[in-house]
Design a protein around this nucleic acid. Structure first.
Length: 494
RNA sequence: GGCGCCAUAGCCAAGUGGUAAGGCAGAGGUCUGCAAAACCUCCACUCCCCAGUUCGAAUCUGGGUGGCGCCUCCA
């Protein structure tokens, strides 16, 4: 089995074969930068980051282009309400987006084109559509004539006449300018106080949809391999992109159309308009949720399925992450003790340099799962099995000072875990639970030893209340006592 | 009204014809004055309901019920 991806266009899982062997061109529909990103966005971009990472790991050279739509009604509106230039709005939220994604360990795109950087190309593209008979100017606007494109609706599985019925009741101030209710704006005439660019049809700005058609062509060419976005972009956004690009170019815009499911709140889609969203930075900063926890939360469902965002789900992901994290830190904590030699082999600390055997069961399970339309919940199973096994051996080393397992076998297990986790973008800081912290604030080691001696004396005198009091005192300082047989008490800082 | 998706343990979630992965939570045991840590073990005769196809169905077909999405800006 090799990689199969669910293609919205064909409504089935298709074998993935790039146009050019070994190379993949991906275009990921980016955000409209008028506000901070929420958890729904996080899921979207994590999903495509995983697709990209998996393709890279499987040996493809991936060019990953993601746009910023930096001109649009909402940006203009926010500029007016905030009394700030629209350029400042888009700059602020583009920067914020990149910050959020970096924290979530989403790889930066190869390039981030902006709509406003390609306005002349957009104008030329629209002219090309007009010349081809696919678009018409109307009172300073330009509209795409959907009836001229016979396969309009092929992506979303709709028919023009059916949609007409649904649209008939709607009031639309553009209606009088359109030939057909489903026609959509390629160019919008500027109103006073709005940003504007020159065009043959008068000053104005690009409509939504057309900027993506143009940026795809400018950055990647006429036909690309993979085009991605949320399920809410299937119609109208991607349908319209197809109509524009394929009318202009007479060849497919993209071979594989991938769409992810929503993040829900109480069963309902998280969205700006419903007001039920949690921003990524709020969750991370005020909610104290580690970025990897959010990532794991997202990956515990297949990307096309809806997921419910609840406190309980985040708490469960938190616990799951700690298990995985301990496994990931195993090599850093115990590698030297197991005689792995950190300097001799650079692959010890650098996942990119690690070479793991692909014939082992965990790796095979992982690949089989990922090949089946990125089945990350299934792919996580072998990771947890590796992590738990390492966690157990780590505990044996801590508590018994030795392990019965073979050092080299552990090393291979650990490297497998690290590499596969990295394919999912799950990474633990090497030093987070590393060497013993040096003399922390609070009690010194000597003070702890003294208290333990006092507790031992109290216990021998059967004064258990005093013994428990000392234990509780230490516990409050983050020190856990472990009573071993023979009256020995070990301790560690948590 | 049109198109489409989903329903598996307390929770999350794999499994698309051969007898229920994994995670979280939970239970019992060893040890222990207690506790914690550690280790060991257990945790869906059943997959929303009804009928059908089949030697065999969570998986296929038909009919219900419940939930959701898109058709308007949206990842």
């Amino acid at each position: 089995m090799s990689l199969h991806l669910y293609n919205t266009l064909t409504r089935r899982k298709d074998l993935f074969e790039p146009l050019e062997p070994g190379k993949v061109k991906m275009y990921c529909c980016g955000v409209t930068v008028y506000d901070y990103s929420h958890v729904g966005h996080a899921r979207n971009y994590i999903a495509w980051d995983v697709v990209r990472r998996y393709l890279l790991w499987r040996g493809y050279a991936v060019t990953f282009v993601q746009n910023f739509t930096d001109i649009d009604d909402k940006i203009i509106k926010r500029s007016h309400t905030d009394h700030l230039p629209w350029q400042q709005i888009t700059q602020t939220f583009s920067d914020a987006y990149l910050e959020d994604m970096a924290r979530l360990n989403v790889m930066p795109a190869t390039r981030y084109p902006k709509a406003t950087d390609v306005v002349p190309q957009i104008v030329a593209f629209i002219q090309q559509l007009i010349d081809g008979g696919y678009a018409y100017a109307s009172e300073g606007d330009v509209y795409y004539a959907v009836e001229r494109f016979p396969s309009y609706g092929k992506l979303s599985g709709r028919k023009l006449d059916q949609m007409e019925a649904g649209a008939s009741g709607r009031v639309d101030d553009e209606a009088t300018k359109k030939h057909h209710p489903m026609d959509f704006a390629l160019w919008k005439a500027a109103k006073p106080g709005e940003p504007e660019w020159e065009s043959p049809w008068g000053n104005g700005r690009p409509g939504w949809h057309v900027e993506c058609s143009v940026m795809v062509r400018e950055e990647l060419g006429k036909t690309i391999d993979i085009h991605t976005g949320g399920q809410d972009l299937v119609f109208p956004h991607h349908e319209n992109e197809i109509a524009q690009s394929e009318a202009a170019q007479h060849q497919p815009l993209a071979r594989y159309w991938l769409h992810n499911g929503f993040v829900n709140i109480g069963g309902e889609k998280m969205s700006k308009s419903l007001g039920n969203f949690t921003m990524i930075r709020t969750l991370l900063d005020e909610g104290g949720v580690e970025p990897m926890v959010l990532r794991l939360f997202v990956l515990q469902a297949q990307y096309r399925k809806p997921i419910d965002f609840t406190d309980g789900a985040i708490a469960a992901a938190q616990n799951s992450w700690h298990t995985l994290q301990e496994g990931l830190q195993f090599g850093h904590r115990f590698g030297n003790a197991l005689g792995w030699g950190s300097d001799a082999d650079p692959s010890l600390g650098d996942p990119a340099a690690m070479r793991i055997a692909e014939e082992t069961a965990p790796v095979r399970q992982f690949i089989t799962a990922m090949d089946d339309d990125l089945n990350t919940p299934l792919a996580l199973a072998p990771l947890f099995e590796l992590a738990k096994a390492l966690q157990k051996e780590g505990n044996r080393l801590v508590h018994e000072g030795k392990t019965l397992a073979d050092g080299e076998a552990l090393r291979h297990q650990w490297q497998t875990l690290v590499v596969l986790s990295q394919v999912l973008g799950l990474e633990a800081a090497a030093d987070a639970a590393g060497s013993t912290p040096e003399e922390p604030e609070g009690l010194t080691d000597a003070a702890v030893e003294t208290l333990i001696q006092q507790r031992r004396a109290a216990k021998q005198a059967k004064n258990f209340a005093e013994g428990d009091r000392i234990r509780d005192t230490l516990n409050a300082q983050g020190i856990t006592l472990i009573d071993k047989p023979g009256g020995v008490t070990e301790w560690h800082r948590s």
